[in-house]
Deep mutational scan, measured.
Amino acid sequence: MLEGKVKWFNSEKGFGFIEVEGQDDVFVHFSAIQGEGFKTLEEGQAVSFEIVEGNRGPQAANVTKEA
């Protein structure tokens, strides 16, 4: 699992990017966010995740919000 911070997330469109120190930003789709209820992320929020190869390159999977 990697750790990063949410760079930005558009809850209307359901996607955004996660910043990872020393690496390129990683695309995140709302469907990759773990948990119940409305799936969104806040700018600057700490998250842990895995990287998988998507249709358009690397993207986040199994995203969990850090306490």
Score class of each variant (00 low, 15 high):
48 S>T: 14
64 T>P: 02
26 V>Q: 03
37 G>E: 10
8 W>S: 09
19 E>H: 12
31 S>A: 06
3 E>H: 08
41 L>K: 02
29 H>R: 04
51 I>R: 08
2 L>I: 13
61 A>V: 10
67 A>M: 15
65 K>L: 12
63 V>G: 01
22 G>T: 06
19 E>S: 14
23 Q>T: 10
63 V>A: 02
51 I>Y: 07
39 K>V: 08
25 D>W: 00
19 E>I: 07
5 K>Q: 11
21 E>G: 09
2 L>H: 15
32 A>H: 06
33 I>K: 03
59 Q>G: 04
30 F>L: 07
32 A>E: 09
50 E>D: 12
44 G>M: 04
11 S>C: 14
24 D>G: 10
65 K>P: 13
41 L>S: 01
64 T>C: 11
18 I>G: 01
64 T>M: 11
10 N>L: 04
6 V>K: 01
10 N>D: 11
3 E>G: 09
40 T>P: 04
50 E>W: 07
36 E>T: 12
54 G>S: 11
64 T>I: 15
23 Q>N: 14
52 V>M: 12
32 A>S: 12
20 V>C: 12
43 E>W: 06
46 A>E: 12
49 F>N: 00
6 V>H: 01
12 E>S: 15
48 S>V: 11
16 G>C: 03
32 A>P: 01
1 M>Q: 05
35 G>N: 07
39 K>T: 06
66 E>I: 14
29 H>E: 07
63 V>M: 02
47 V>T: 02
50 E>N: 13
33 I>Y: 03
65 K>V: 14
54 G>D: 08
26 V>E: 02
43 E>V: 15
61 A>I: 12
5 K>L: 08
62 N>I: 05
17 F>C: 06
15 F>M: 07
12 E>C: 15
37 G>W: 04
40 T>G: 09
62 N>A: 08
24 D>Y: 07
57 G>Y: 05
59 Q>P: 01
18 I>D: 02
45 Q>W: 05
15 F>K: 04
50 E>G: 08
9 F>A: 03
15 F>V: 07
3 E>T: 11
67 A>P: 07
20 V>W: 06
60 A>T: 02
67 A>G: 07
8 W>I: 06
61 A>Q: 10
43 E>Y: 13
28 V>T: 04
8 W>F: 10
3 E>P: 07
56 R>L: 08
62 N>F: 08
62 N>G: 07
37 G>D: 07
61 A>Y: 11
65 K>Y: 11
62 N>W: 06
9 F>H: 01
10 N>I: 04
45 Q>H: 06
31 S>C: 03
18 I>H: 00
23 Q>C: 12
34 Q>I: 10
19 E>M: 14
7 K>W: 00
64 T>F: 13
52 V>H: 14
42 E>K: 15
28 V>G: 00
54 G>P: 02
10 N>P: 01
56 R>S: 07
37 G>R: 07
55 N>L: 14
38 F>L: 10
46 A>P: 12
42 E>R: 14
25 D>P: 06
62 N>S: 09
24 D>E: 12
34 Q>K: 15
56 R>A: 07
36 E>R: 13
50 E>P: 00
37 G>S: 09
52 V>S: 09
21 E>A: 15
56 R>N: 07
7 K>E: 03
57 G>F: 05
65 K>T: 13
66 E>A: 12
54 G>T: 14
33 I>S: 02
31 S>K: 08
47 V>K: 01
15 F>H: 06
61 A>N: 08
47 V>D: 00
12 E>P: 13
10 N>G: 04
32 A>D: 10
64 T>L: 14
13 K>F: 07
16 G>M: 01
59 Q>F: 12
52 V>F: 08
19 E>P: 00
62 N>K: 13
28 V>I: 06
44 G>V: 00
61 A>T: 11
55 N>H: 14
39 K>P: 08
60 A>V: 02
40 T>I: 10
5 K>D: 02
1 M>T: 06
62 N>P: 01
28 V>R: 02
67 A>S: 14
27 F>V: 04
50 E>V: 10
28 V>D: 01
32 A>V: 05
12 E>F: 15
30 F>P: 03
40 T>V: 12
6 V>N: 03
66 E>K: 14
55 N>T: 14
26 V>L: 09
12 E>N: 15
62 N>E: 07
45 Q>P: 00
42 E>S: 15
32 A>F: 02
1 M>L: 08
57 G>K: 05
46 A>D: 09
16 G>I: 00
55 N>G: 13
38 F>W: 12
36 E>I: 08
18 I>V: 06
15 F>A: 04
18 I>L: 12
23 Q>F: 07
6 V>A: 03
20 V>I: 14
5 K>F: 10
45 Q>S: 09
59 Q>T: 09
35 G>V: 07
7 K>V: 06
11 S>F: 07
1 M>G: 11
62 N>C: 15
49 F>M: 06
40 T>C: 13
50 E>Q: 15
47 V>F: 00
2 L>K: 15
18 I>P: 00
4 G>T: 01
35 G>K: 05
45 Q>V: 07
12 E>K: 14
17 F>I: 08
11 S>G: 07
10 N>K: 07
38 F>Q: 10
56 R>Q: 09
5 K>A: 06
31 S>L: 04
3 E>N: 13
2 L>T: 14
14 G>E: 03
52 V>W: 09
43 E>Q: 15
53 E>N: 10
20 V>R: 12
49 F>E: 02
48 S>E: 12
32 A>T: 05
11 S>H: 09
5 K>V: 09
50 E>Y: 08
50 E>K: 13
6 V>M: 04
38 F>V: 11
8 W>P: 02
16 G>E: 01
40 T>D: 11
21 E>M: 08
24 D>L: 07
16 G>F: 00
27 F>T: 03
